[in-house]
Each structure stands twice: as C-alpha cells, then as structure tokens.
Simulated scan of single mutants.
Amino acid sequence: MSQGWVDIHCHLVPGIDDGAKDQNDTLAMARLAVAEGTETVICTPHQLGAFRHNRGDQIRRRVQAVQELLNAHRIPLVVMPGADVRIEDDMPQLLASGEVLTLGDLRRHVLLELPHELYMPLEPVLDALRAQHLVGILSHPERNRGIMRTPEIIEPLVEAGCLMQVTCGSLAGSFGPQCQQIAERFVSRGLVHFLATDGHGPKSRRPLFGQAVQRSTELVGEAATMKMCRDNPCLVAEGRDVAAGPIAVAAPRRGWRFWKRAS
C-alpha cells in the first residue's frame, strides 16, 4: 500500500476542462503535489454536463501523455485516468460502454458530481451503478447548495453505501466558513471516506493536502485521517473495495474550539 497521499480527484490534464491550462500548469501542479508527499493522482477531467465533448479514449490518451511528460521531467508521480462525472440520465449506459470513465479506469468506482445549485435524489443513481457492480463516490457534497441547506441528507446516503469525498480546501476554509463548517461536521461524524484536492491550478485551488490533514487530525485523529487521505484512496487506485458506511473516528482534542460548531 502507498505510503504517500493518493489524490482521487484532480484536474491535472492540460487544456481539457477548467483545470490545468497547459503543460506548464501541469508540471507546476505535479511538483507541488510531490513536494507534499503525493505519490499517485487519478486525473479527473469533467465528463458530461458542459463537458460532454470529453470522450473516454481522449482522456486515456491525454493521461498517458501526462505520464510521459512527468517522466521526461523526472517528476516521481504516477497518474491514472478517471473522470469527474456530472450525473445525467444516460450516464449508466456511457459507463457500461467505457465512454465515461471510472476512477483509474478500473470499472469499480465512479466519481459523481451533482449540479452545484441543487441536490437531486441519488438512490436511483446508486441503484443503476450497483447493477453494473459499480460504487458511487459523491464529490464535494459540502459545496453543493442543496446539501448545504439540508446536510442531514448525507448520513442516510452513507448508510446506504454511497461513499463521500470532501475537498481539502473546504476543510481548510478556502471555500468560506459555511463549506468549512459542513466539511467539519461530515468528517467529525465519520461520513467522509476520502479527502482529495480537486486541484485546478498551480496558483489557485492547488493540489495540496497539508492544511486539510492538520485540520482532520485535530477533528478525528491520525488513523481516520490516514484512511481518508491514503488508505481508502489507495484501494480505489487498486480497484479494490472500500468499506461502506461511516468510518471510525477518534474524539477531538480536548478544548478544540470548532468541535461544538461541527457536531
């Protein structure tokens, strides 16, 4: 198993979506990630929604080109193909055909993106994925406006087997106090299976774990933090099962000032 971070959500591929603009951005982002201890990145360009033009084989070729670029510059980072998939009606069929990518292209986990403005019931989506022996990972629920209004809807989803990925920047406060509060609440209750950077560039929304790791460790201890940043992401990168349901978390440090707000 990896000893460093495994980032399952990062927009590292240049010129394909709203992430890295060019190879220079990709190289700068990769160097930042490696300097922090990241060993593996699953590249997740947007698919469907406004990025329906991003095709599966195109993403596979571009991720291979990124790996060759990193190797040429002696940057010790492994990259794998994947996608940040907007939930649409034909998503199950496109997953079945391979046109829409699973994480690592391993036919096990799908990174699901809701429309940012609203929440839609995920149970039918999860059932459709289950029929293909796929598992859904909901990306950044703490940043969805519908969930921000009713965060209590997350716990039943986790109990039903949906996995959750919170953005490192949310936990560090980069998206504002409300996102941070909800991220802290989810982490504190063991409802988060992955922390990932959702990195988009070398200057803004950088692919960094550090502050989130510190905050998570304050909230729930080192073991749970390692599970979210390393162990569970590594299982995804290997195409192996991640335990469903809430994860075990430690009590917060005595006197930690954000605990009451997050509980």
Rank of each mutant, 00 (worst) to 15 (best):
M228F: 02
A224P: 00
N232H: 10
A223P: 02
A243Y: 01
G239I: 05
C234M: 05
C234E: 07
E238G: 00
V242S: 04
P233V: 00
C234V: 01
K227N: 14
V249D: 12
A250H: 08
E222D: 14
C229N: 12
G255N: 11
N232W: 01
G239P: 01
P246F: 01
A250N: 12
V236I: 15
A243M: 06
G239M: 04
T225R: 06
D241M: 09
A250S: 14
P233W: 01
C229S: 14
E238D: 04
N232F: 01
G255P: 02
C234F: 07
A248W: 03
R254A: 15
D241T: 05
A224C: 03
A237F: 01
R230E: 11
G239F: 02
K227E: 15
V242R: 06
A248F: 10
A243C: 10
G255V: 09
R254H: 11
M226G: 08
M228P: 04
A250G: 09
E222P: 02
A237K: 00
E222H: 10
D231P: 11
R254K: 13
P233M: 02
E238T: 00
R254D: 14
R253L: 15
R230I: 15
A251T: 07
C229A: 13
G245K: 07
A237C: 02
G245M: 05
T225N: 12
G221P: 06
A244V: 07
A237M: 07
P233K: 02
G221E: 15
A251N: 08
P252L: 12
D241E: 15
V236L: 07
A243I: 09
G255A: 02
E222F: 12
D231I: 09
